[in-house]
């Protein structure tokens, strides 16, 4: 999952670096606010993740796996602090252990420390105070790895690295197996930590209801899988425009990477449509959250 230097094309790594720098700055400010004077805690927990990766979990067929840690950190330290710890880990891995590149650091930070951690935290955030708590922790671990790995593959595809169908299928299969394993390990460790001391676990105050969580999961599922059963026929307005001949006079002023609800760089038809759907969902979620905060902010009279 750690993309090394030389794999991403300059426009891709440069764009991801440009996106990651302010995003890390934003998370650093949040972490500073919520975890002020707690740098020792975050540093030692980063070292813990490294150390925990040395402990192997048997998974059968003579193989073993280890904890990745993004979701576990998010559930115990909170998302902003977890993002900082994961970013620090990625910098150390890139510089000292040759695991991931320096120019590709923006991509790796975005995949694993920012989006990966948030994907790992959201199910727990919504289900922490419901009977689905355990499912939330498992899903968090699962999503943190799957989302990070899928983004890495998409970025490689956008850089022109070509994959044949079988290679892509094997990679996707490996990602799902690794993600399930991360979910199971995260859940097992989380429960063991909670048994040792319930105070070590971060339970979000005013966590969302089970309905909100299910709604979020349904939206993600619909965006990713709904395209498989969606009709390919034009909608009413497009049909009318085609029949009246207006459609042929349409002028495209500019194009975006998600034109026609397809993310061309992603490759296959399903992947490109699902990618566009998920990207759109993320953009709308961020915009609505920002607007909600703006509207809900108390005004000084």
């Amino acid at each position: 999952m750690h993309i090394p230097d030389g794999f991403l094309s300059p426009p891709v790594w440069a764009a991801l670096d440009v996106v990651s720098v302010p995003a890390v700055g934003f998370m650093a400010r949040r972490a500073q606010r919520t975890a002020a004077d707690r740098a020792p805690l975050l540093g030692v927990m980063g070292a813990f993740v490294f150390a925990a990766q040395m402990i192997n979990f048997p998974v059968g067929l003579g193989t073993s796996g280890h904890l990745v840690g993004g979701a576990l950190l998010a559930c115990t330290l909170g998302p902003a602090a977890a993002s900082m710890v994961m970013t620090a880990i990625l910098v150390v891995q890139a510089l000292v252990f040759q695991d991931g590149g320096v120019l590709a650091l923006g991509a790796n930070v975005l995949n694993m420390a920012l989006i990966g951690v948030m994907a790992g935290y959201l199910p727990y955030r919504y289900w922490a105070n419901t009977p689905l708590r355990r499912a939330g922790v498992f899903l968090g671990g699962f999503l943190s790895v799957l989302v990070g790995a899928s983004l890495a593959m998409a970025q490689l595809a956008a850089s022109g690295v070509s994959f044949t169908g079988p290679v892509l299928a094997v990679s996707a299969g490996l990602f799902v197996v690794t993600a399930v394993l991360e979910g199971l390990i995260t859940l097992a460790v989380f429960e063991a930590v909670e048994r040792l001391n319930p105070g070590w676990v971060n339970t979000p105050a005013g966590a969302g209801s089970r309905a909100t969580g299910l709604l979020a999961a349904a939206a993600v599922l619909l965006a990713a899988v709904g395209v498989l059963v969606a009709s390919g026929s034009p909608d009413g307005l497009e049909n009318l425009a085609e029949q009246s001949g207006i459609a042929s006079r349409a002028v495209t002023l500019f194009t975006t990477p998600l034109t026609d609800y397809e993310w061309k760089a992603a490759g296959g038809e399903w992947l490109s449509k699902a990618g566009a759907g998920l990207a759109g969902l993320a953009v709308i979620y961020v915009l609505c959250s920002m607007m909600g905060r703006l509207i809900g902010r108390p005004r000084n009279s």
Partner: peptide, 20 residues
């Protein structure tokens, strides 16, 4: 680089060997 990030990096490296 944000101070909190550099501090975390410094402490992470320092305790990495010990916890490993």
């Amino acid at each position: 680089m944000p101070p909190i990030l550099t501090q975390v990096m410094e402490l992470l490296y320092r305790y990495l060997f010990l916890l490993a």
